[in-house]
């Protein structure tokens, strides 16, 4: 299968204008997704993964947020240039999204059924009856017990896992090309996490969707992703296919992240943490943003910004080493 790029982000900059100053949440990020693959986007909290994802659909609350520059190319169009009504045809229809907090991502005063049906009616020109049928179908595809009953229930009557299944049902029912899953399992119990992840992956394959999986969990990346983008402080620091990344991580940040994963059976008194904290996003840093925390930082790293370079085919790193 030829590698067809479905969606690509080019030099995206999303800033938030706050009282402390301009917060550069996403500062020149580029990545692309190939049809049928799962792209993992990893990084600590606050590194700009979610803001990037929200920027794709132009969902950044403005003010204070603003997409300053960059292009989102999807099906030959730059989404940044589309008028809002065209953008709405893409949202949920061609690109759909699953969010981190299933507890708060569904509207509390409408039934699950009416929320699902509404989206299906909107994008697929279904009648009320057809939409309802489709919603039931999708719920049972998401392994919901007694979907007819669930249709009539309100979000607060369901558990977190069930709500996330309902969200997935909504996302999949739209037959969209790209699924953005923003930390879909983070807010769930560990046992439910595995179920939801498996379900997402399996259904993604069934429905032939391309997925951007945003997570801070390298375990999930290892299990689910084909290629990985590692982000740090609003920038992409490394990109590689999942095997080369785990075999030969190049960026010190990636290496540090991997050292911080506990491994079953190996007794370690202390897990290695990544020392220090992410620099405040409104600080102007001329050199490498990771330099202050980097065990291998050289004088040059503080002065000069390392550009991304290809160390192997498809393996990009922003580091002088």
């Amino acid at each position: 299968m030829a590698a067809v790029t479905v969606l690509s982000i080019r030099d995206l900059k999303t800033y938030f204008y706050t009282q402390e100053g301009v917060s550069r949440a996403v500062d020149g990020v580029s990545y692309h997704v190939i049809r049928g693959e799962t792209l993992g986007v990893v990084g600590e909290s606050g590194c700009g993964k979610s803001v990037t994802a929200l920027s794709i659909l132009r969902l950044i609350p403005s003010p204070p947020g603003k997409i300053v520059s960059g292009e989102i190319i999807f099906e030959g169009h730059n989404l940044m240039d589309l008028p809002l009504d065209k953008m709405r045809e893409i949202r949920g229809n061609k690109i759909s999204m699953i969010f981190q907090e299933p507890l708060t991502s569904l509207n509390p005063v409408f039934t699950i059924g009416s929320q699902l049906s509404k989206v299906f009616i909107l994008h697929q020109n279904l009648t009320k009856k057809e939409a309802k049928k489709k919603a039931i179908e999708m719920l049972s595809a998401c392994e919901m017990p007694s979907p007819e009953r669930i249709m009539k229930e309100y979000p607060y009557q369901l558990s977190g896992g069930m709500r996330q299944r309902a969200m997935i049902a909504m996302a999949l029912g739209c037959n969209s090309k790209v699924l953005i899953a923003d930390e879909p399992t983070t807010a769930l119990d560990v046992t439910i996490q595995a179920q939801i992840l498996d379900l997402t992956l399996q259904l993604r394959k069934e429905f032939g969707m391309t997925m951007i999986l945003i997570t801070h969990n390298l375990g999930i990346v290892a299990k689910a992703a084909d290629r990985v983008v590692v982000m740090y402080a609003g920038e992409k620091v490394e990109e590689a296919d999942v095997f080369s990344l785990f075999e030969k991580p190049r960026h010190p940040y990636t290496i540090a992240l991997m050292k911080s994963i506990p491994i079953l059976g190996r007794s370690e008194k202390f897990l290695k943490e990544v020392k220090g904290v992410v620099p405040a996003p409104y600080l102007e840093i001329s050199g490498c943003k990771f330099a202050d925390r980097c065990p291998e930082a050289m004088r040059r790293c503080h002065r000069e910004k390392p550009q991304l370079r290809e160390v192997e085919k498809g393996h990009l790193v922003a580091c002088f080493r």
Binding site: S96, F99, E101, V119
Partner: peptide
């Protein structure tokens, strides 16, 4: 500011 408003926007609701 609630999440479900973002969800609604993300699914193309007017």
């Amino acid at each position: 500011r609630e999440d479900y408003i973002t969800t609604a926007r993300a699914y193309g609701i007017s």
